[in-house]
C-alpha cells in the first residue's frame, strides 16, 4: 500500500468513526431522556420527529444559538482551552477501539479499526487519564469556588478510580496474554467470555468506569444540590455542550472497552452470505455497547448519589484491595495451569 492510499484510507476511517461516535453521543442523550422519562412515568421528548428522534438536532441548534457568556473574572486562556481539552481526549480515545472483524470491499481489505496497536489497551487508558485535565482546568480557571471544588473533586475521584480500573483490567490481560484489544477479543472465542472467567474484575471495572465518567452514583463533581453545577458552572452555549459531549463520548468509549474486555467484542453467531458475515459482527458489537449505555442510564435513575467520603473510602479500601486480590489469584491460577 502506497503512503497516499494509506493516508486517504486513514482519513476516511477516522472521519467515519468520529462521525459515528458523535451520532452515538447525540442519541445517548436522547436515550437518557427517554429512559429517564419512562422510569419516572413520563413520556420524555415526543414533539420533534417520530418518538422525539430529532430532539438531539434541536438541542444542538439550541446550544449553537445560546449566548456564549464569558465572565470577567475567569482566566481566559485556560477557560477557553478546558472544554477543548476534554473534548479532544474524549474523541481520541476511540482511535484504537476495534469494532468489527476483517472486511473486504473489492480489492481492499482492512480491519474495522482506525489503528491496531499492540498496546491498544494502554493507549485507551493513557488518553482517558489525560481527559481529567479538561475538568480540573475548567474548575480552576473559572475562578469560582463551586467550580474549583467541582474540579478538585473530579480530579481526585478520577485518579482514585483510575487505579482500580487499570488493575481490574490486568486480570483480563493475564488471561488473554496480550495488550492488543484485537488479541483480547480473539482469546474469547467459543463463548470463553471474560465475564465468566473474570467476574470480579468485571464488577470492579463497571463500578470504576461509572466513577471515571463522573456518572451517578458518583457524580459528585457536578452535584447540583451542593455545587450548583460543579466544574461547568461558568460555562454556557457550545462550551458547555463540549463538556456534555465529552462526558457522553467517554461513556461510549468505556462501554466499548467493557464490551471488548469482558463480553467478547464483535464475537457472536455469524451466518449467511458474505455481506451478512461482514456486517453481523459489527451489529453484535453495537448491541453490546447499547446494552452498556442503557445500563448507564438505568443506574443513573435508580441509585442515589454517594457521599464524598464514602466515595473515597469505597475506592481505596474496597475496590483497590479487591482488584489486587483478583490479580494475585488470576496470576496464580494461570501459572499453575501453565
Amino acid at each position: 500500500m502506497s503512503i497516499t492510499t494509506f493516508v486517504i484510507i486513514s482519513i476516511i476511517k477516522s472521519l467515519a468513526v468520529v462521525g459515528v461516535l458523535l451520532t452515538a453521543v447525540a442519541y445517548s442523550v436522547w436515550l437518557e431522556r427517554k429512559v429517564s422519562a419512562h422510569i419516572q412515568n413520563r413520556w420524555g421528548p415526543t414533539r420533534v420527529g417520530p418518538f422525539g428522534l430529532l430532539q438531539p438536532l434541536a438541542d444542538g441548534v439550541k446550544f449553537i444559538f445560546k449566548e456564549d457568556l464569558t465572565q470577567p473574572h475567569v482566566y481566559k486562556p485556560l477557560y477557553i482551552a478546558a472544554p477543548m481539552i476534554a473534548m479532544v481526549f474524549a474523541i481520541t480515545s476511540i482511535s484504537v477501539i476495534p469494532f468489527g472483524n476483517w472486511v473486504e470491499i473489492g480489492p481492499w481489505g482492512m480491519y474495522l479499526q482506525i489503528t491496531d496497536l499492540n498496546i491498544g489497551l494502554l493507549v485507551v487508558l493513557g488518553i482517558t487519564s489525560m481527559g481529567v485535565y479538561g475538568v480540573a482546568l475548567a474548575g480552576w480557571s473559572s475562578n469560582n469556588k463551586y467550580s474549583l471544588l467541582g474540579g478538585l473533586r473530579a480530579s481526585a475521584q478520577m485518579i482514585s478510580y483510575e487505579v482500580s480500573l487499570g488493575l481490574s483490567l490486568v486480570g483480563v490481560v493475564i488471561v488473554a496474554g496480550s495488550l492488543s484489544l484485537r488479541d483480547i477479543v480473539d482469546a474469547q472465542r467459543h463463548l470463553h467470555w471474560n465475564i465468566f472467567l473474570q467476574p470480579v474484575a468485571f464488577f470492579i471495572y463497571l463500578i470504576s468506569a461509572y466513577a471515571e465518567t463522573n456518572r451517578t452514583p458518583f457524580d459528585l463533581p457536578e452535584a447540583e444540590s451542593e455545587l450548583v453545577a460543579g466544574y461547568h458552572t461558568e460555562y454556557s452555549a457550545m462550551k458547555f455542550a463540549m463538556f456534555f459531549m465529552a462526558e457522553y463520548a467517554n461513556m461510549v468509549t468505556v462501554a466499548c472497552l467493557a464490551t471488548l474486555m469482558f463480553f467478547g467484542g464483535w464475537l457472536g453467531p455469524v451466518f449467511g452470505p458474505p455481506i451478512l458475515q461482514m456486517t453481523l459482527p459489527v451489529l453484535w458489537f453495537c448491541l453490546k455497547v447499547f446494552f452498556f449505555m442503557f445500563l448507564y442510564v438505568w443506574v443513573r435513575w435508580t441509585l442515589p448519589r454517594f457521599r464524598y467520603d464514602q466515595l473515597m473510602a469505597f475506592g481505596w479500601k474496597v475496590l483497590l484491595p479487591l482488584a489486587v486480590a483478583n490479580i494475585v489469584v488470576t496470576a496464580l491460577i494461570v501459572a499453575w495451569r501453565a
Partner: peptide
C-alpha cells in the same frame, strides 16, 4: 507522567 503525576501537580 502526563496522566497521573502531573494531575497530582495540578491538584
Amino acid at each position: 507522567y502526563a496522566g497521573a503525576i502531573m494531575v497530582l501537580f495540578v491538584i
